[in-house]
């Protein structure tokens, strides 16, 4: 209905709908604003007026206050976050795409059903409680305290598997048969026919995996032996747990932890929201 010609009752209803959606959105976004403003304000100033909408002055002096957290330079946490997230994302996409493809193309091969169930059981196991025995496994494999251990553990995830599986199931059998009749080997079918078709879903999976792995903290904390392998969220948690905590520094570190993924999400929001919705619908 056109709003200009709508009867007054509808106009009122519409105003109410906008007001409600507006209030909820502001409430959801306010924590970001408060975090950002607090990162520029001294603890003293925040205690005096917690609601101030703009900082007294803009300066980045707090960055020198958190240039070293728990004996490790801030830069190292940033590099760890980028490196661990990027490598585990690439690995996750490659491993899950190949695995989901094989399990979808030939579900009845000996061992494949068992593997599928093994995977489904794994993702249903309470994650934080799985991480604890994973500590023992990492110890036995000699991977405790290593980047390799962290990256390998982060490479496995349910939504990645479901998105690929859902996509591979929808590929018409004729497309693959035609390629095989033309003399393509199974490897050629995968790399020349299927994967090029899968480029958009691969991008979606990569994006979602990056966002999810950037946020990971518990497995990284458990597998790490020292803060040298911590990522930003783990460093933030460590800083938040300290007594007599540096409030302004915590807010600044929260901003640094949140900003990259917020920007990435806003740049690719449709892909992320559609992907997460359809990955869940399968799950």
């Amino acid at each position: 209905m056109e709003t200009d010609t709508a009867p007054p009752a509808n106009r009122l209803l519409q105003a109410g709908a906008y007001a409600l959606a507006g209030i909820v959105s502001v409430a959801f976004l306010y924590p970001y604003w408060w975090m950002l403003v607090s990162a520029f304000r001294s603890t003293r100033a925040i205690m005096d007026s917690p609601l101030r909408l703009l900082p007294e002055r803009f300066d980045l002096s707090i960055l020198s206050g958190i240039s070293n957290i728990g004996g490790v330079p801030l830069l190292r946490y940033i590099v760890n976050s980028i490196g661990i997230t990027a490598v585990s994302t690439l690995l996750s996409v490659a491993v899950t795409a190949l695995g989901a493809y094989a399990l979808t193309r030939r579900p009845k091969l000996p061992g494949f059903t068992v593997l599928r169930y093994g995977f489904l059981v794994t993702i249903m196991y309470p994650y934080m409680l799985l991480v604890i025995p994973v500590y023992l496994v990492m110890f036995k494999l000699g991977l405790l305290g290593t980047y390799a251990g962290i990256i390998l553990f982060l490479a496995l995830g349910p939504i990645q598997f479901f998105l690929f599986e859902q996509f591979f199931r929808k590929i018409p059998g004729e497309v693959i048969e035609a390629a095989i009749i033309d003399g393509a080997s199974e490897a050629q079918v995968l790399f020349r026919v299927v994967l090029p078709m899968a480029a958009p879903i691969t991008a979606t999976v990569a994006l979602i995996t990056f966002l999810l792995n950037w946020a990971q903290w518990f497995p990284i904390l458990v597998i790490s032996k020292t803060p040298d392998t911590y990522t930003l969220p783990v460093a933030l948690l460590a800083m938040n747990t300290e007594l007599g905590s540096n409030f302004q520094g915590i807010m600044a570190l929260s901003v640094i932890t949140t900003l990259p993924v917020a920007v990435l999400f806003l740049a690719a929001q449709k892909r992320v929201m559609d992907g997460m919705a359809s990955g869940a619908v399968k799950g």
Binding site: F28, A215, P233, T257, V261
Partner: peptide, 19 residues
Amino acid sequence: FRLALFLPVVTPDVAGYVV
């Protein structure tokens, strides 16, 4: 409105809960 409500989903949970 959709973005405002979905942004927290991709915000690292530690950072969100700290705030």
